[in-house]
Simulated assay, not measured.
Amino acid sequence: MGKTAALTVVQKTTIDTLHKEGKTQKVIAKEAGCSQRSVSKHINREAKGRKRCGRKKCTSNRDNRTLERIVKQNPFKNVGEIHKEWTAAGVSASRTTTHRHMQDMGLSCRIPCVKPLLNNRQRQKHLAWAKDKKDQTAAEWSKVMCSDESKFCISFGNQGPRVWRKRGEAQNPCCLRSSVKFPQSVMVWGAMSSAGVGPLCFLRSKVNASIYQDVLEHFMLPAADQLYGDADFIFQQDLAPAHSAKATSTWFKDHGIPVLNWPANSPDLNPIENLWGIVKRKMRYARPNNAEELKATIRATWALITPEQCHRLIDSMPRRIAAVIQAKGAPTKY
């Protein structure tokens, strides 16, 4: 039978804590993320007072706390920089030991998520908005039509797939992923509700209040007829200058369309942001050669969005709001 994997410091602490609470070994193994055999061996070793064999540790608990403080001060440093700062604090350890201690603390190197920067005032508004909407049900959110613009490029950077090829085929045109210095791109406006998606609008120039009102007239109103019929709805938009202009507000009043108040820099609250992500992932393997082919691909992919997908996204609104409240107005996983 193979050896059991070595437990990390975090796992050992979890096992000790749950064991003192009287939890079963099966429950402890599930919570600690290890095998039940590892849990049993650790508990028995601690009960008998047996110590691990092997070389004595070169760092003390105080040294480990210093390392943890260094990482928390700037988690974007690489292992080499952290090791240099740790040894400068008087700790005698190799770079490999530094890396191993960081892993024992439960730290892993990951690609950071990209979220909009929120200042304190925006966070407070974010939180206040969420608290005001916390009792709104998914059925009530189904009356909201969400809208947004998104940029699509011919080149999708590192999102493209890997290629299977033989030796010597690296320069074969069939195995190349094209890149250009200034890739063509298109800006798209779209809308969705729990019933599905509306028609897309490709924007030819920078959007001002006049152009945005044309979009509302020729694309938003038909989308509302398609998704709601004669039923009432509430329109959602972000706080872009063209959206919050006085002329645009007058347009909504003249057409009798209520607009949902919306906090600034809050894409995690807008389900259509996730819909754009779905479309771009589906287009990952597409290779349009020009802007017209790109538009055709976007239209075809948008048409594949099902009402069930939209319904699930709208149903997530209460969970999004709860996440904002829990994060005290900070960006969430959505």
Rank of each mutant, 00 (worst) to 15 (best):
K57Y: 13
K125Y: 02
L118G: 09
K131I: 07
K84V: 08
P116A: 05
R95N: 14
H126N: 10
D104S: 13
R55G: 02
I43Y: 01
P112D: 04
C113K: 14
K48P: 02
H99S: 14
V91T: 14
P75V: 03
R62A: 13
R100C: 01
P112G: 03
M102H: 00
A128E: 05
T66Y: 03
N44Y: 08
R69C: 08
A128T: 10
N119I: 08
M102E: 06
C109Y: 04
G90T: 03
R65C: 15
R65N: 05
K77E: 11
K51C: 00
C113W: 09
H126R: 11
T97L: 09
D63W: 06
T87M: 04
T96Y: 11
T87D: 04
R121H: 13
N78A: 02
K131D: 10
K131S: 08
C113T: 06
R45A: 05
K77R: 10
L127Y: 13
N74M: 04
A128C: 12
K48N: 14
T87W: 02
K41W: 00
E68F: 07
K115E: 06
E68Y: 07
R121L: 06
Q122K: 07
N44A: 01
A93R: 13
I111P: 01
P75Q: 13
K48C: 07
A89Y: 01
R65V: 11
E85Q: 09
R50V: 02
S94E: 06
Q103R: 15
K115S: 05
T59G: 02
K72W: 07
W86E: 02
M105Q: 15
V114R: 10
N119G: 08
N74I: 01
N64S: 10
R62N: 08
P112C: 10
S108M: 11
S94V: 04
D132R: 15
K57A: 12
D104V: 01
K56P: 00
G106Y: 05
T97A: 10
H99A: 15
N44L: 09
T59E: 11
H83G: 02
E68M: 15
